[in-house]
Amino acid sequence: MLALYWLIDTILKLLLFAIIISAVASWLVAFNVINPYNAFVRTVLHTLNRIVEPLCRPVRRVLPDLGGVDFSPLVVALGIEFVRRLLAELFF
């Protein structure tokens, strides 16, 4: 049973890291620190977007429009952390 907990927890940690990296990368693109026209950067951004977007899209539909600021990654990250702590309490 601990192996199952470890697997789920590791997947949730990787999703959390992907959300953080995606948010930071979007800021870096917005401030012209990284070039999104570079093939490697474009591939990384596209991959991160394909991982994070299905998680953030439903939250984005529920949250009100806040004038260009997207809080959906923060809400999803909080939800992932909540699930991780809930699983830790259930397994231990």
Rank of each mutant, 00 (worst) to 15 (best):
L2M: 13
I8R: 04
D9N: 12
T10M: 10
I11H: 07
K13V: 12
K13T: 13
L15S: 01
L16P: 02
L16C: 04
F17M: 11
F17Y: 15
S22T: 07
A23K: 07
A23I: 08
V24N: 05
A30E: 08
A30H: 10
F31K: 11
I34Q: 03
P36Y: 06
N38I: 05
F40A: 15
F40Y: 12
R42S: 14
R42T: 07
T43A: 15
L45G: 05
T47A: 15
T47K: 14
L48T: 07
L48R: 08
N49V: 09
N49F: 13
R50G: 02
I51C: 07
I51R: 04
I51P: 01
V52Y: 03
V52R: 01
V52C: 15
P54I: 05
L55F: 10
L55K: 01
C56H: 02
C56Q: 06
C56Y: 03
R57F: 13
R60P: 02
R61Y: 12
V62R: 10
P64M: 07
D65Q: 10
G67L: 03
G68K: 04
V69C: 08
V69F: 13
D70A: 04
D70R: 05
F71E: 00
S72P: 04
L74G: 04
L74K: 00
V75P: 01
V75Y: 05
V75Q: 03
V75A: 09
V75S: 03
V76Q: 01
A77G: 08
I80K: 02
F82E: 00
R85E: 11
R85Y: 12
R85D: 10
R85Q: 15
E89P: 00
E89K: 13
L90M: 14
L90R: 09
F91K: 02
F91I: 10
F92T: 11
F92D: 09
